[in-house]
């Protein structure tokens, strides 16, 4: 079956990202297709490569990035929510005149239409939030 996942919260503050990651892994292990994982609201903070959690803590961004690489996942960070919260890719940084970007490998920034499309194209949409 074709599934999509919506993540509404950032890492560490709330369990939503952990739950979404474990759900996505389990769905892939069962042979389902993950059409897209969409990061919205504070969920966009999952997509910065500048997080440095303590060594004995899990690194959610790296886990998402690794899962993306293994399964060619489509990890989409909402552009409007990302701009509010300082998540930029190279193009956006240049366009907004910022001196750097922080998007993590495997994530891409795109519009909210990608979330609606995920709802249309997927058999199920599963929401993780607060």
């Amino acid at each position: 079956m074709k599934l999509s996942v919506l993540v509404n919260e950032g890492p560490y503050q709330h369990q939503a990202s952990d739950s979404a990651l474990l759900f996505t892994k389990a769905a892939l292990e069962k042979g389902h297709e993950i059409f897209r994982v969409f990061f919205y609201h504070d969920g966009v903070n999952n997509g910065t490569r500048f997080t440095v959690p303590p060594q004995d803590d899990r690194n959610l961004q790296e886990s998402w990035t690794a899962l993306q690489a293994e399964h060619e996942l489509d990890l989409v960070v909402c552009i409007a929510a990302a701009q509010r919260r300082g998540i930029l890719d190279e193009n956006e940084a240049e366009r907004q005149g910022k001196d750097g970007n922080n998007i993590a490998p495997g994530f891409r920034i795109s519009g909210l239409g990608q979330l609606v499309e995920a709802g249309i194209e997927s058999d199920r949409l599963v929401v993780f939030g607060d």
């Binding site: 079956m1 599934l3 474990l22 759900f23 892994k25 389990a26 769905a27 292990e29 069962k30 389902h32 058999d123 199920r124 949409l125 599963v126 929401v127």
Partner: peptide, 14 residues
């Protein structure tokens, strides 16, 4: 979590 996935696919929506 595998059971969570099954519940999602066994129901029409979440």
């Amino acid at each position: 979590y595998a059971g969570f996935v099954d519940l999602v696919t066994e129901h029409d929506k979440v």
